[in-house]
Measured scan of single mutants.
Amino acid sequence: KEMRNAYWEIALLPNLNNQQKRAFIRSLYDDPSQSANLLAEAKKLNDAQA
Rank of each mutant, 00 (worst) to 15 (best):
L38R: 04
E9C: 12
D30Q: 15
D31C: 12
Q49D: 03
I10G: 00
N37A: 06
E2Y: 02
N18Q: 12
S27E: 06
K44C: 05
D47H: 13
L39Q: 03
Q19Y: 15
W8H: 11
S27D: 05
W8V: 12
A36G: 08
Q49T: 06
N18Y: 14
R22Y: 15
S35Q: 09
N37R: 14
L12R: 15
K1A: 12
A40D: 08
A40F: 11
R22G: 08
D47L: 14
I25R: 03
A50E: 12
S33V: 05
L13S: 04
K44E: 06
R4S: 12
D47A: 13
E41I: 12
L12F: 11
L38V: 09
P14C: 06
S35I: 12
A11K: 15
P32T: 03
D47N: 10
Q20R: 02
P14F: 04
I10T: 01
I10L: 09
L28W: 04
D30T: 14
E41A: 14
E2Q: 08
L39T: 04
A42N: 00
N5C: 12
A23C: 10
Q19V: 12
E2K: 10
A23W: 15
E2C: 13
L28S: 02
A40C: 05
L45R: 03
R26N: 05
K44L: 06
Q49S: 06
A48G: 09
R4P: 09
K21F: 03
L16A: 00
E2V: 07
P14V: 06
A50K: 08
N15V: 02
L45Y: 04
E2M: 06
M3R: 07
D31M: 13
S33E: 06
K43F: 09
D31E: 08
A23S: 12
A42Q: 00
P14N: 06
K21D: 00
K44F: 09
Q49A: 10
L16G: 00
A23V: 06
M3S: 08
L39S: 03
L16F: 01
S33I: 04
N5T: 14
L12K: 15
A23D: 05
K1C: 13
E41M: 15
R22M: 14
E9S: 14
Q49G: 05
S35M: 09
I10H: 00
R26D: 03
F24K: 01
D30H: 15
A11H: 14
A23F: 14
E2F: 03
A36K: 14
K44T: 07
K43A: 04
L28M: 08
R4K: 11
R4L: 14
M3T: 12
L13R: 01
Y29D: 03
R4Y: 15
Y29V: 08
Y29E: 06
A6P: 05
I25G: 02
Q19E: 12
P14S: 08
L12E: 08
N15F: 13
L12H: 15
L45N: 02
W8M: 13
L16E: 00
Y29I: 10
L38N: 02
Q20N: 02
R22L: 15
P32M: 06
D47I: 13
N46V: 01
A48P: 02
R22H: 09
E9A: 15
P32A: 04
N46R: 01
W8S: 07
K43Y: 14
L12A: 12
N46Y: 01
E41S: 10
P32W: 07
L12P: 01
R26P: 00
L28F: 03
D30C: 14
Q19N: 11
Y29M: 13
A11W: 15
L45V: 10
Q34Y: 05
D47T: 09
A40W: 12
A50Q: 08
E41Y: 14
S33R: 08
P14Q: 08
W8L: 13
N15E: 03
E41L: 13
M3G: 08
S35P: 02
E9W: 13
P14H: 06
Q34C: 06
Q34N: 07
R22D: 05
A23G: 09
Y7P: 03
Q49Y: 11
K44V: 10
L39I: 08
A11D: 03
N18H: 13
A48H: 09
S27I: 08
M3H: 10
Y7R: 14
N18T: 07
Y7C: 07
N17A: 05
W8T: 08
S35E: 07
N37P: 03
N46L: 01
K1M: 10
L13N: 01
A6E: 04
A42V: 02
N5A: 13
K44Y: 07
Q49N: 09
S33D: 06
K1G: 07
A40T: 08
L28V: 06
L45S: 02
N15W: 14
A40V: 08
L39K: 04
N46H: 02
D31K: 13
A6N: 05
D30V: 13
A50M: 11
E2I: 11
I10W: 01
A48Q: 11
I10K: 00
E9Y: 15
S27N: 08
S35V: 09
Y29P: 01
D30N: 14
A6L: 11
I10V: 04
A36S: 11
Q34E: 06
E9F: 15
N15P: 00
N37V: 12
L38H: 03
R4E: 13
N5H: 14
A6H: 06
A42G: 01
M3V: 11
A11F: 15
L39V: 11
A40Y: 12
D47R: 13
L45W: 03
K1E: 14
M3A: 08
N37H: 09
S27Q: 09
Q19P: 06
K43N: 06
L28Y: 03
E2A: 06
N5G: 12
R22F: 13
N15G: 05
L45A: 05
N17F: 06
R4M: 15
A11G: 04
K1D: 14
D47W: 13
R26L: 14
L13I: 01
P32N: 03
N18A: 09
M3W: 14
Q20F: 02
A23K: 12
Y7V: 07
Q19A: 12
A42L: 02
N17E: 05
N15Y: 15
Q20C: 06
A50I: 12
S35Y: 14
S27L: 13
K1F: 07
N37I: 14
D47C: 07
Q34D: 06
L12T: 12
R4T: 12
N18C: 12
P14Y: 05
Q34H: 09
N37Y: 15
N15Q: 04
Y29C: 06
M3F: 12
L28T: 02
L28G: 01
L45K: 04
A42P: 00
A11M: 14
E41D: 09
A40N: 09
F24Q: 01
D30I: 13
R22W: 15
N5M: 13
R4D: 08
A42M: 01
L28K: 00
E9V: 15
Q49F: 07
D47S: 12
A48T: 11
Q20T: 04
Q20S: 02
R22E: 07
L38K: 04
E41H: 12
N37Q: 09
R26E: 04
L16Y: 00
R26K: 06
A11V: 11
E2G: 07
A6I: 09
